[in-house]
Amino acid sequence: MALTEPISQLKVQFVIISDENEGQRIDNFLITYLKGVPKSLIYRILRKGEVRVNKKRVKPEYKLKVADQLRIPPIRTAEKTQVNFSPKLQKIANLEKAILYEDDALLVINKPSGIAVHGGSGLSFGVIEAFRTLRPYAKFLELVHRIDRETSGVLMIAKKRSALKALHEQLRAKQMQKDYLALIKGDWPSECKVVQAPLLKNLLKSGERIVKVNQEGKPAETRFKVEERFGFATLIKASPVTGRTHQIRVHTQYTGHPIAFDNRYGDQAFDYQLNQTDLNRLFLHASHVRFIHPKTLEVMQLSAPLDDTLQQCLTFLRAHKSSFK
């Protein structure tokens, strides 16, 4: 049985796992064991390798085994202190769980839908403000690129100015490949592999920003590939060559195949057809990124899994595919 006494604030702790905790994820075990320690700190010490299992680093999803020896670093606990987190603060803390990769040069997360990448336009905070709050001693944290608030998936943050400069140069030289998954209306034509249509930004009186295809706009190119067909809808992979605002959303709308639950460029009748799937958000997800590491020069490929809402939508469509044809 694992130790249950309050841990010392200043000592390294060693815990032997018994059959009582076998199969439990190490992050969930530590959250229970380290009562009073913020979840954000727990995920940080796991990610940095300060927690060791049998003298080895493990990921938060590692499942404990009988006789595993855990090394837990010195941590200050908030014994007999109750902290009531506001929903906003809890949302910020949860971003630690969304980290896909981190080293001393960059940080990559699987951004949840509904969180802006930065504050502004009536929003008090975004992802970058959140991580500056979570990392108060970080000297440098800047967004490498942006994705829409409603879009989920891969988002890169530079931790050094040199890394930001190198990654921006890759973006300019089109050496960084970003792939998105989108569920769009109708049967996407297989022969439509590239859309080249200039995009022009328009600011409405309400302050809302709308982008339209316009010959006076900036050049924009998106490559498309069919991933799966459902009759009345298609799952596509979209790879933007340029990085214009709302590019994928506008290019799919321009071809007559708007993205599901797009509140700016979508189709309400199509959204209604998806009611049974319980989808309630834009089905656009930055699923994959390929780039050259700014420090090691290694070719990096990172993927972000779909959230439960998007995955459940696809599961339903696959199970009822025949009824939609």
Score class of each variant (00 low, 15 high):
V15R: 00
R25A: 00
F29Q: 08
L34Y: 01
P38I: 12
R44N: 11
R47E: 10
E50I: 00
V53M: 01
R57F: 07
V58A: 01
K59W: 05
P60G: 06
D68M: 07
R71A: 04
P73H: 10
P87S: 11
K91T: 15
I92H: 03
N94A: 13
L95D: 08
L95A: 08
D103E: 04
D103K: 04
L106H: 05
I115G: 01
V117E: 03
G122I: 03
S124T: 09
S124H: 09
L143Q: 10
I147Q: 08
G153E: 07
L155G: 08
L155R: 09
K165P: 05
K174P: 13
A182L: 07
L183R: 07
W188H: 07
K201D: 09
L204F: 01
E208V: 14
E208Q: 15
V211F: 03
P219M: 08
A220R: 03
G231H: 06
A233K: 08
V241D: 00
T242C: 05
T245D: 09
R249C: 02
Q253C: 05
H257F: 04
A260F: 01
D262C: 02
D267V: 03
D271N: 13
L284D: 07
H288R: 15
I292A: 14
E298V: 13
V299Y: 15
S303H: 07
D307Y: 04
T309D: 13
Q311K: 13
Q312I: 05
T315Y: 11
